[in-house]
Amino acid sequence: MAFTNENLAVAQEILARYPKPKSAILPLAHLAQDQDGYLTQDAMREIAELVGVTPAEVLGTTSFYTMFKRDPVGRLVVSVCTNVTCLVLGGPEVLEHLERRYAGDTEVTIEEVECLAACGNAPAMQVNYEFHESLTPEGAAEIVDAYKRGELTARGVSGGQVGGGA
């Protein structure tokens, strides 16, 4: 299945923003991924049609970007940074702990990512692109569990950091 009727209307609105339709590939791919959880082949075909390119070009473009998943992922995508600040402040340990703990859990997909621009409170991770910072391995797992239980939902948790840990 490709876009729902509502999302097709959103897609038209997105297309109208750009002087050239091909520019809409990324926003449309985000829209499709938000809808289906990952970027399905049907969606890429439909995007190709909407912007007037071949499906190969849509795949060529989208496969360049790490945020687009081409296979199904868990309901919760947990992105753990291990780049150089998180590296020395415990990021790899958080990653390892989560990977072990959620191995085989189809609801949770753990991935290692590059610097998330949260180094002021390293180590950091995102759950469905929601920031969580100053983590410990156990603390990170508690956060993921809270999402699993529905106590946390993605949106507006962190306010971005200022100096001094404020």
Binding site: Y18, S23, L26, F64, Y65, T66
Partner: peptide, 27 residues
Amino acid sequence: VIHRGAGAYICGEETALLSSLEGDRGQ
């Protein structure tokens, strides 16, 4: 227009950014 990237550091490089904004691979 606010345009979201999709996970590619190179798109910070200004010409890669323009390619990406045009719907191409961010090169």
